[in-house]
Amino acid sequence: MENIAGSKSALSWIVQLSALALVLLWLFPTVGLLVSSFRTSDQIASSGWWQSLFPTEQNLTLRTADPDDEGVQQLIDGVYTVSGNLFVVEGDADSAAESEATISIWGTSSRDIAAYQPGETADLGDGEQITVEVNGDYVWTSPTELSGRGQRAFVTATTPPEFTTENYETVLISGNTTDSMAKAFFNTLTVTIPATIIPIVIAAFAAYALAWMDFPGRALLIACVVGLLVVPLQLALIPLLRLHLEIGIGKGYLGTWMAHTGFGLPLAIYLLRNYMVGLPRDIIENAKVDGATDFQIFTKIILPLSFPALASFAIFQFLWTWNDLLVAKVFLIDATGQTTVMTNQIVELLGTRGGNWEILATAAFVSISVPLVVFFAMQKYLVRGLLAGSVK
């Protein structure tokens, strides 16, 4: 009864549920990064991205208008008065969400931010008093003329959902990070495109030779290629860097291209060779009978038929090199930042900008957008390339 047509086995359900779990594990962080890139720093600090569509409670540090500014301080009934709204700065609300915020509790000291309810009056000493309403309206009074900066107020407010494009404007259009991010973007392209094309070209020739050309030691070379697949990248970094420095190609793009090529070649040769072995032998033999050379067979027959495998490896190599940080740190040494790649630039943003998580989330999503476009544009070739040689 277990094998009745139309029924699914337990193993089939396990495979499908496992695939669904892997998709969700990949999807949730990506969606979270996208949502966070459109949120403000206060919202990111107060709630998770999954709460972005609901009102959130935030602890805010606000300040009244400066009494020294012209027209702010008024003498009313013998009392110097400063009034306004805590959420309004220079006539405009800090944000659309804050203009609709409601205050639940507030205080005048960071040690006791829940000292007062909206509408209550706080005694600041020497006759000074301040009253804060639920919508942020305040009245600050004193028997003597006020001076200095505005009075701080620590409020707990409920704000509606808010999304902004200012983060992308800061990263891509204006702000201190624009030039560095744009330069890092083109530097990453400079590293990634040659580091993807070079190993594909070399591996295609090598794979054809190992698949269809008879020569002494071919089996040994295939075994060496398989063995190199398990060599850890970290094991070869320092020896390879010393070699590059000795021959004069270290600290630059050329050394980085060669490093990525060396680390990517074993998988490329193995993948392409498995695919080419599975091609029909009759096509190659008929071409040889017609007088075609190996180079003509390779360029006219093998390469067009091997496009799925080539595209499959191109996806992997592009993703690896684009998201790489370790190889770029080791082989792309530049104290001036002229050759900094995006992954390294994001690390530097984390170190220099500290808690500006909205900028980091935006920069990170900009960084992953290109690999996402490449993956979805060429995903139809991925499975065909991965299954190369599995079915005769």
Rank of each mutant, 00 (worst) to 15 (best):
E2H: 11
N3F: 15
K8V: 07
I14N: 10
Q16G: 09
S18V: 11
L24T: 14
L24G: 06
V31A: 14
V31C: 09
S36V: 01
S37Y: 08
R39P: 00
R39C: 02
P55V: 00
T56R: 06
T56D: 11
T61V: 10
R63W: 15
D69Y: 14
E70L: 14
Q74T: 13
I76V: 15
G78P: 10
Y80Q: 07
Y80K: 05
V82E: 10
S83E: 15
G84I: 02
N85E: 08
L86P: 07
A96L: 12
A97H: 08
A97M: 06
E100Y: 12
G107P: 09
S110T: 13
R111Q: 14
I113H: 08
P118F: 01
G127S: 04
G127L: 00
I130L: 02
V132H: 03
E145Q: 15
A153T: 14
V155K: 00
F163E: 05
T165S: 08
N167E: 02
Y168I: 03
T177M: 10
T178S: 06
A182T: 15
N187M: 04
T188D: 04
T188Q: 00
I198F: 04
A203W: 07
A209W: 11
A211F: 06
A211H: 07
M213D: 12
D214R: 12
R218V: 06
L221V: 14
I222A: 12
V225K: 01
V226D: 13
G227H: 07
G227Q: 02
L228K: 03
P232G: 02
Q234S: 08
I238Q: 06
L240W: 06
R242N: 13
H244Y: 15
L245M: 11
L245F: 12
W257T: 01
G262S: 04
G264I: 00
L265N: 03
P266K: 00
I269T: 05
L279Y: 07
N286V: 09
I297L: 05
L303F: 01
P304R: 00
L310C: 02
S312D: 06
F316P: 03
F316W: 14
W320Y: 11
K329F: 11
F331C: 01
I333N: 13
A335L: 12
T339E: 05
I346P: 11
E348A: 10
L350F: 12
R353T: 11
G355F: 10
W357M: 12
T362A: 15
A364S: 15
V370M: 14
A377D: 09
Y381S: 04
Y381T: 02
L386D: 07
A388C: 01
G389F: 05
V391I: 12
